[in-house]
Design a protein around this nucleic acid. Structure first.
Length: 850
DNA sequence: ACGCGTAAGGA
DNA sequence: TCCTTACG
């Protein structure tokens, strides 16, 4: 029998049905189709480049679990009874109490009957009646993914009877290290994960969309009230670049602007319909803030004009596309893990201009705020530029950004749309929930984890307002140190989680026999001794082993084709992102598996690892000059000493410390987390030093970089003589430039991110906020995520935005001080006195100038 | 909307 | 001293 499968739009129009049997596609996401009361899978067909949909074939229904009996539910249900589809007994493993739970599974006809907003769902009803309820806060499509065992990002084939069958090649090379794992659960996990990671992600065509509306300078276009017409919409795609304009008056518009084809429409309805049709042809549509603006605006405006908003599907706070995947790059680039681990912190703020400047080197066009009077060709250029840079931002990393998202979708089991919108804690949550369902383990409620296992922490954080103590940072021995080895615990926190089995599941378990298993003296928490308890430590252990023992090697394996090596590199860097966040989530209040004792235990074990390694190093007579969290800086050690350290630490702790790098020399200041190290090959590592921070003025940063260049050429203590002289010379040069005002305003501007709305700065008014207020007074809009560029001035306010300042107002004295504090961090150690070099910068310098 | 520790500058 | 930001 050939089942017919829905395809194309489903916004009220008769669904166009095409047979999909035999079709192959990558699963992109799963969503709930209200009109069909079904979960629907959205797949990408690499053959045709199109999206197709496969509705649920299993008869799956939304449900919750409760300790109430069916009769009790029935009695309480009242009006909701009609929406209950049935009851089934459900036996689950209660991971918090570590015992079996016999529960009632209440199936409903629609997801809102479970947890409908306004407290009208079964969840609240049963809760108010004093019953326990589980798994009632899980989005329906997520629950569906777990139960059907679907893995977003993987290829599937549609069977004759409309099922999705995974398509994984048989010849997947499984890591040899899987065989070395003694426990069966970990081995299976590793094989499953390796299997789903092996398949390369498909290339998908993409287009970026940006629209402009006719709002005047003082009008802020809102999606709540779509009053202004859409006057421009640009599409920057893999194979077309167009800007669509609404005819207003009779201006002469060229047929092409900046390489984009210009199309002038007589009506707004026609413009919108054309644009919607165009984006329907791409499997991936990028926007920048399309969830918050472009998509809802287009859809609502379409509706007002009597145009079908298809393929846009508006939800409360996001916009999906029936014909593809909409990725709002504002959301993606705002993700802290993405910002830090994928882009190495290259961009500071989260505005399109800032991110594009930093990542692809092109910014927005400057046109002012009044879109009603702007010249048409200019408007077209502006709009197209936005779409163009959005498209570039969607295709960075040689197009591997989408590959990474695909990979995260596979690991987290989240739809691609969610991966691109949710934070790392949601990725980890979903990854764990999926595994729980597979095992018939009960997904616990946050409150019961706290209730049964405790929320109390016993260590005191050094920072006021923090919940527990963190890592150890050793007091640096200030000075220049030659021949320094850095030994470190690779992925320390994940290693601790795996080695001691720390997670919310294992901490403070109900077994009396485990109470004495307390790996950290001074903390009352214990860890379960039963091997089968706890999934998270096994999962984290497997991900870590796969990264360091398998994918990192494959990514470097010269015998593999380039393309394949790159895919393995995507995998290992993706795993790193997840591993880096694996500890932090336990200490994060909003994580549904929040466990302060687990978090506290992990940092306590990290301190234990650090102090143990330090003790052993000292016993071996090694000279430790610095260390932070997971590393020791050891001066003048022999290879034998380091081997001995490795061996003894491994014996003592059961986790590995290893040689990470060797420095020709290291400059340590008195400050922690501040150092400069020159490696054997001349590369320079700079940590924490002011001269590297991206918010300090370019001029200061450049001066600093040139001084670093001088230090790069130092090979032994004798070389310092000459280097000192050169450095002094260099500093004098820059000091003089400053004195003589030989700089542009941009070179002396500070860059600082506005993290809140301007109005929210009530306690104090920092300088960047002052500058931001001046900008706003001049009509420039600033919002959270905007980078404010300002210079220090001699005026009453002491500060001005770059765009409003003049060179004559720059407060030279202030900049001298900044130069001084920046350089002192390294000059101190080199025995150079800044003031002396600068020729008495503070008073005399200025006196000489005036 | 991962965690804590350290540092700096200004109010 | 606290607030804000940047970074390890």
């Amino acid at each position: 029998m050939v089942r017919l499968v829905a395809s194309g739009n489903s916004l009220g129009e008769a669904s166009q049905l095409v047979p999909a049997a035999g079709r192959v596609g990558y699963l992109l996401s799963v969503y709930y189709e209200g009109s069909e009361r079904k979960a629907v899978a959205k797949l990408y067909d690499p053959e045709s480049g199109e999206i197709f949909h496969v509705p649920d074939w299993t008869g799956h229904r939304p449900y919750l679990l409760t300790d109430a009996r069916p009769e009790e539910v029935e009695e309480l249900a009242g009006r909701l009874a009609a929406r209950i589809a049935g009851y089934a007994p459900s036996e689950k493993w209660d991971v918090v109490r570590l015992r079996k739970a016999r529960l009632t599974r209440v199936e409903t006809k629609d997801p809102l009957a479970v947890g409908g907003d306004r407290g009208g769902g079964l969840r609240e009803l049963l809760g108010r009646a004093g019953h326990q309820v589980w798994e009632a806060r899980i989005k329906y499509y997520e629950s569906y993914i777990y139960d059907v065992g679907l893995i977003p990002g993987l290829p599937y084939r549609v069977s004759e009877d409309g099922r999705l069958e995974p398509l994984i090649p048989d010849d997947v090379k499984l890591p040899r290290l899987a065989h070395t794992l003694s426990d069966e659960a970990s081995r299976r996990l590793m094989e499953d994960i390796a299997r789903i990671l092996e398949v390369r992600a498909p290339k998908m065509r993409s287009v970026a969309l940006d629209i402009e509306v006719a709002a005047a300078e003082n009008q802020i276009p809102s999606v709540k009230e779509v009053r202004h017409p859409v006057i421009a919409a640009a599409l920057a795609g893999d194979d077309e670049n167009e800007v669509h304009l609404l005819r207003r008056g009779a201006p002469e518009v060229p047929g092409e602007i900046d390489g984009a084809r210009v199309v002038v429409h007589e009506s707004e309805a026609e413009l919108i319909r054309t644009v919607l049709d165009k984006i329907s042809r791409y499997p991936v549509v990028f926007t920048f803030n399309g969830d918050g603006f472009d998509m809802p605006y287009l859809a609502k405006r379409a509706q007002e004009l009597g145009v079908n908003p298809r393929p846009i599907r508006l939800e409360r706070d996001r916009a999906l596309l029936d014909t593809g995947v909409h990725i709002d790059l504002y959301q993606l680039y705002s993700n802290r893990s993405v910002q830090v681990y994928i882009f190495g912190g290259k961009y500071l703020g989260t505005t399109l201009d800032e991110i594009a400047q930093a990542i692809v080197g092109v910014g927005k066009l400057e046109v002012g705020r009044d879109f009603t009077s702007i010249e048409t060709a200019r408007l077209a250029s502006y709009c197209y530029r936005d779409a163009k840079i959005t498209h570039m931002l969607g295709n960075v990393l040689d197009g591997r950004l989408i590959d990474l998202l695909m990979l995260f979708a596979r690991l987290s089991k989240l739809p691609l749309e969610d991966v691109a919108r949710l934070g790392i804690s949601q990725w980890i949550k979903n990854m764990v929930y999926f595994e729980y369902r597979r095992r018939d383990w009960l997904i616990p409620n946050k409150e019961e984890i706290i209730l049964v296992r405790g929320a109390e922490t016993y260590s005191r954080a050094l920072i006021k307002g923090k919940k527990y103590m963190g890592a150890i940072v050793l007091e640096p021995v200030p000075g220049v140190h030659f021949d320094v080895h850095v030994m470190d615990f690779a992925s320390l926190y994940p290693s601790i989680i795996a080695r001691w089995g720390v997670s919310f599941e294992t901490v403070n378990c109900p077994h009396t026999e485990c109470r004495s298993n307390r790996p950290v003296e001074g903390l009352p928490h214990w860890i379960c001794t039963h091997d089968e308890v706890g999934l998270i430590p096994k999962l984290i252990g497997v991900l870590r082993d796969l990264r360091v023992g398998w994918y990192k090697r494959l990514a470097r394996d010269r015998s593999l084709p380039e393309e394949q090596r790159r895919w393995y590199d995507v995998i290992q860097s993706g795993l790193k992102v997840l591993l880096n966040a694996s500890y932090g989530v336990f200490g994060y209040e909003n994580f549904p598996l929040y466990s302060p004792p687990a978090a506290e235990m992990i940092t306590a074990l990290a301190r234990k690892a650090m102090t143990t390694a330090l003790r052993i190093a000292r016993e071996l007579g090694l000279n430790v000059v610095y260390g932070d969290t997971d590393s020791l800086f050891i001066k003048g050690a022999s290879e034998g000493d380091l081997r001995a350290l490795e061996r003894r630490v491994e014996e003592d702790l059961g986790i590995d410390i290893e040689l990470e790098k060797h420095y020709r020399y290291v400059i340590l200041s008195r400050l922690k987390k501040n150092y400069l190290g020159v490696r054997d090959d001349g590369t320079v590592d700079i940590k924490g030093l002011l001269g590297k921070k991206r918010n300090v003025p370019d001029l200061v940063r450049r001066a600093f970089a040139e001084v670093i260049d001088i230090l790069r050429s130092v090979h032994d203590p004798a070389d310092f003589e000459g280097a000192r002289r050169e450095i002094k010379e260099k500093i004098r040069e820059y000091v003089n430039r400053l004195r003589n005002r030989e700089f542009s305003l941009e070179e002396v501007s500070f860059r600082m991110v506005l993290t809140k709305p301007l109005k929210s700065y009530v306690k104090t008014t920092p300088q960047h906020v002052k500058a931001a207020k001046m900008l706003e007074a001049r009509g420039t809009r600033v919002y959270p995520g905007t980078v404010i560029e300002f210079v220090k001035t001699t005026g009453r306010q002491g500060v001005k935005p770059v765009s409003l300042a003049k060179k004559e107002e720059v407060d030279i004295q202030k900049y001298m001080e900044i130069m001084k504090t920046t350089f002192e961090q390294i000059l101190d150690v080199l025995g150079i006195d800044f003031d002396e070099v600068a020729g008495g910068v503070s008073e005399e310098g200025l006196a000489a100038y005036f």
